[in-house]
Computed example of a mutant assay.
Amino acid sequence: MTQTPENAPKALLLSAYDAQSHRYWRKQICQGLDQWQWSELCLPPRYFSWRQRGNSLSWAFKERETLTQEYDFLLATSMVDLSALRGFVPELAQLPTVVYFHENQFAYPQNAQQLSSIEPQLTSVYSALCADKILFNSLFNLNSFLAGARALLKAMPDQVPKGLMDRLSAKAEVLPVPIASQSDRELMTAPLGQKSHCLRILWNHRWEYDKGPERLLAAIERLDQQLKSMAKEARPDIRWLILGQSFRKVPGEFTKIERILRADDSPMALEAWGYESSVEAYHSHLGSADIVLSTAEHDFQGLAILEAHAAACYPLLPQRLVYPEWFQESICYPSSTIEEEAQGLADEVLRLAALKAEQGDLPKVHSRVDFNWSSLGPSYQACFDSLLGNRP
């Protein structure tokens, strides 16, 4: 850790819904810019609606001493109700401010159990207008936010000031979340066992509806059917690693997936299942996998995919969301109905299994962007410094 100089900028970082990906980003920023003096306030990632609307109230009356310290800079996630927090704590309105969008509420798929509300969307627009700079982890995120904000403001009945979209567009920039450093990624290349003739498929996402468990189930069902139609000696050895964090309500598709893969007559094997709390063990799983799969209906950057890709996994991704921004569309499977995607995925898995059997490994896939801190860090530094008046 670099020793912080006495005249280093003092920054306040606010994470109002400190989910795993938000925490990952926060740690990367504070470690990468360790010459700054960071103070951090975070709220746990639960009770979404209350957290999104109530964070300003919680902080203003519980953390006033921290909020009213002398700072040079404010960095907040888009979940922070910045306009309300500035009203409660006027000192914050004087600080150069960046709001970081890990996601936006306009492009987030609605669960059948969720009530549609414009309040989270409108609050994020207010926070963006308060900021001097708004950063997005992908162009897909930025464009869908601007399109959603434009449509929302257009739908308001009256008294919408002119030029708001120009203000938002002028301060918006894409700056992805950096992934682990090269030294950290070396941990990922130590597999649980040597990669062998088998084909290991990793699905490593939150166990929630927006990550496409229905699509994953359909693909596994289709692959199960096709393998059973083959002679046993002709079947490729396919093994699944289905990992990820689960919450109080787990989609029922996961029970069905486990039942299929653990069945006595299953032509595939289930090698890992559930949440892996050990970082070292998780990285070993990444290192042992051949393919990292996404069936997501929501991904604004896809950190789980990018980490696995850094560990030499072949990315098998739908042709939607952010993925074509990071990888050539030729490696993305067509985005269509659940049934058509399931068939396309099953066919692609069998093709890749045959390719590995023939060549001993899968081809290396390059991303369009270098996500290392060494590449992205200078852009973060330049962005923050510009708001400090290029302070040395």
Rank of each mutant, 00 (worst) to 15 (best):
F300G: 01
A147V: 06
G148V: 04
E6F: 10
S78P: 04
A76W: 03
Q69L: 08
A93E: 11
A131W: 03
P120F: 06
N137L: 01
V292T: 06
Q110S: 07
A304H: 14
R320P: 05
L192V: 01
S379R: 15
Y108S: 00
D347E: 10
Q328H: 11
L153S: 00
G212Y: 01
D265F: 14
D265L: 13
R150Y: 09
P251Q: 02
I291P: 01
E233R: 15
E233C: 05
N141D: 01
D184F: 15
Q194L: 10
P267R: 01
I242V: 04
E70I: 06
G148H: 04
A382P: 10
E65G: 06
I179P: 08
D81I: 03
W203Q: 02
P236N: 03
A84Q: 09
G244C: 04
K171D: 02
N137W: 03
L13H: 14
E91N: 12
R200W: 04
A149Q: 03
Q113M: 05
N143L: 12
S266R: 12
A107H: 07
A76G: 04
A308E: 00
R259N: 08
D72W: 11
V250A: 05
K195G: 00
D132L: 14
L14H: 06
P176E: 00
E103M: 01
A128Y: 05
Q35M: 10
C130T: 14
Q20D: 08
R167S: 13
F88E: 12
A190H: 13
I257F: 10
P251K: 03
I338Y: 07
G360C: 01
A172Y: 07
M230N: 07
Q110A: 10
A312M: 15
H205S: 06
L217Q: 13
E271L: 07
E214D: 15
S169K: 15
A357Q: 14
I220V: 15
E348F: 08
S367K: 12
Q113L: 13
L199W: 04
L355Q: 14
A8G: 13
D81W: 12
S335E: 12
G212K: 04
Q301S: 05
F106H: 06
P5T: 02
K171N: 05
A272R: 15
P5E: 01
L33Y: 08
Q301V: 04
M165W: 02
C383V: 13
R150I: 02
Q20V: 12
P267Q: 02
E271F: 08
R391E: 00
Y314T: 00
T2W: 14
E186R: 13
A354E: 13
E91M: 14
A190D: 05
M188H: 12
E91K: 15
E258Q: 13
L122E: 04
K10S: 07
V250L: 09
E221N: 14
H197G: 07
C30G: 06
Q35L: 06
P176V: 00
I118R: 11
K162V: 09
T4P: 09
E348A: 09
A346M: 01
L306W: 09
L187Y: 08
F48P: 03
R86T: 14
K249S: 07
E358L: 08
Y282H: 14
A272M: 02
